[in-house]
Design a protein around this nucleic acid. Structure first.
Length: 576
RNA sequence: CGGGGUGUAGCUCAGACUGGCAGAGCGCUUGGUUUGGGACCAAGAAGUCGCAGGUUCAAAUCCUGUCACCCCGACCA
């Protein structure tokens, strides 16, 4: 690792601020709402071309390439080899894996001059598995971990928050191939550790949480999440044990209700009361004393979902249960056509519609449900006495306050941004794309795969988001675009210029990269830009410091500065 | 795809209701005075008011259409 660092530091860059392409801005352009997005724009790191597409400018690119370097070093340490696969991929590959439909409109498709369809790769499982299938023959060729840093294209419905969600972005994607479960475990573990190191070195406290594997398929899946109010994901976490999961995936225990003796059903008039809130208030009962009916359309088929009134449906769980490709709330026409009455629906006596019930309908008794006619509900409904369901299973969305599945403590929830995702894929792709090998017994078997992704730009955005104050960015050492911000005040004065340039070449000679502020700006402008750009060490040379034959050193993380003699400046800087 | 919002100088925005010479701050250029936390004075350059059509003597402003961008939701390896 040290070897690589030295390799990269050999080309110690020095850039003059007056020549740097990309200006700092006092105000961020309108439309940048998140702190990281604003800072990246103000610091001249990025420029937006269109929705979800950005140019990375020089100052940003220095940091970007540092992130890539860290990723490459940790991949190498984890035993992965780098390749580079095409972004342009025959659509047939996507038909072969069945993911053309799974991705749907998110998949960018282009036509070549012969009218052949090509996909702009949103990810590379198809290509890498085909490649490995062509290459490996024997178990002796395994284990194998390949990775690349390649541009991905995804026609996102809504790009947002600068580099956090974009349509064209560089992603490091790694793929492991093993001959058995133990091998997969080992490869997965190596990548897990590599990811932990990457986040640590990038200065972001990402935590691993259980996740749904979504359209990519496979069994186990872990997302690395950064806690952030601007996040798109909701994370459920236990405060007293290690349990953490994406809310899409989270399990847990919902509040119990005391079982009572079952009473006879009774119809009550509830005029105009069609929501759980209204009905509960009207009948003076708790939400958990009611049963909520929700209608979904799963691949065009109407599904009747019944769940206790205080809970919500976890649509990912439901989608997985139904093995549906498309799941959405049914519209009024679909509900009416199925003979159901929105607001007053009940599973009692319903036929011809698939009924999926959450386990919570068994936790409690004498529930209130709709009466399947407008203006009426039924009291004292009990399962299975009064209605049947095609399935009774866990489809409840776990929220803050519910019980931890591991230790029972009250769960907490927070928003977060996904900065990495690990999957144990198994043989899904190797079967479909033909990545087989001969095992020790001479049997032809599919390779066991894992895949591991991390978005470079998104990670960089999160480095900024997690390392800043009201004045600007505070770069972690390893990601910082430059090591040193050299500020010359009153640079028109020849002694100042000479002292600054001398220090500059000393720093460069010592292998440090330097941003040299050689502009004729006032001290205020220079210091504020230094704070905004946030390099780890600021070194100031001015008539005032030269009177004492010194330079001033200040760390971005500290408010104090100190004077050091010009002769010892280099040593002090290196020691900071 | 549903809801909301915004398009005027490089950036942030006013002007629109009530049609009548295209504006301010920041930034930029030139000269001067300044110089340790976003200086000051003076003189300048800079806009197809998103685009198209319509109404009108006259449109940034009113009407119709359209495009782009942002936010919330849906979606999202």
């Amino acid at each position: 690792m040290l070897y690589f660092s030295i390799m990269n530091k050999v080309v110690a860059t020095a850039v003059r601020f007056s020549q740097l392409f990309g200006k700092t801005m006092r105000q961020a352009p309108a439309g940048a709402d998140t702190a990281a997005h604003q800072l990246m724009l103000r610091a001249g790191m990025i420029n937006q071309l269109a929705a979800g597409t950005y140019t990375i400018l020089p100052f940003g690119l220095h940091a970007y390439q540092n992130v890539e370097r860290i990723i490459r070093e940790e991949m190498a340490a984890g035993g992965a080899q780098e390749i580079l696969m095409p972004a342009l991929q025959p659509i047939e590959l996507w038909e072969q894996s069945g993911r053309k439909d799974a991705f749907g409109p998110t998949l960018f498709q282009v036509k070549d001059r012969k009218d052949r369809m090509l996909a702009l790769g949103p990810t590379h499982e198809e290509v890498v598995t085909t490649l490995v299938g062509q290459t490996i023959q024997s178990y002796r060729d395994l284990p194998l971990i390949l990775y690349q840093i390649q541009t991905k294209f995804r026609d996102e419905a809504r790009p947002r928050a600068g580099l956090v969600r974009v349509r064209e972005f560089a992603m490091k994607d790694a793929y492991s191939f093993d001959q058995n479960e133990a091998g997969l475990e080992d490869s997965y573990d190596r990548m897990y550790k590599a990811y932990a190191n990457i986040y640590k070195r990038c200065g972001v406290p990402a935590i691993p949480v259980d996740a749904d594997s979504g359209a990519i398929g496979g069994k186990a899946s872990v997302e690395w999440i950064l806690k952030s109010d601007t996040g798109e994901d909701e994370v459920i976490k236990c405060p007293s044990c290690a349990y953490a999961a994406n809310a899409e995936k989270a399990s847990g225990t919902v509040p119990q209700r005391v079982k009572e003796d079952e009473k006879p059903t009774e119809e009550v008039a509830t005029p105009g009361k069609s929501t759980i809130i209204d009905v509960s208030a009207f009948l003076k009962i708790e939400y958990s004393q009611t049963l909520k009916a929700v209608f979904y359309s799963a691949d065009k088929q109407v599904i009747f979902v019944i769940i206790r009134g205080d809970l919500d449906v976890n649509e990912i769980k439901l989608k997985n249960l139904l093995k549906a490709t498309e799941l959405r709330i049914a519209n009024d026409q679909e509900v009416a056509r199925a003979g159901l009455v929105p607001g007053y629906a009940s599973p009692i006596g319903v036929s011809g519609v698939k009924i999926i019930a959450d386990e919570s309908i068994k936790m409690g008794s004498n529930f209130v449900t709709g009466a399947n006619k407008v203006g009426f509900h039924i009291k004292n409904v009990n399962y299975p006495r009064d209605f049947k369901a095609d399935a009774v299973t866990d489809i409840a969305k776990i929220s803050a306050g519910h019980g931890c599945p591991k230790c029972g403590a009250k769960l907490e929830s927070f928003r977060g941004v996904e900065v990495g995702h690990l999957f144990k894929l198994g043989t899904v792709y190797s079967q479909k794309m033909g990545a087989f090998f001969l095992d020790k017994d001479g049997a032809r078997v599919p390779a066991l795969m894992g895949c591991y992704g991390i978005g470079v730009g998104r990670l960089l955005a999160m480095v900024v988001e997690q390392n800043r104050d009201e004045k600007g960015i505070i770069w972690p050492k390893e990601v910082a675009p430059f090591d040193v911000h050299l500020v010359a005040l009153n640079i028109e004065q020849e002694p100042v210029r000479q002292a600054a340039e001398k220090l500059l070449s000393e720093l460069q000679g010592a292998g440090l990269s330097v941003l040299y502020d050689d502009r004729s700006e006032t001290p205020g402008v220079k210091f504020n830009d230094a704070d905004l750009l946030g390099l780890p060490i600021r070194v100031t040379v001015s008539p005032r410091t030269l009177q004492k034959s010194s330079a001033e050193l200040k760390l971005r993380t500290e408010s104090q500065n100190r004077l050091v003699g010009l002769g010892e400046a280099l040593a002090s800087i290196k020691g900071s």
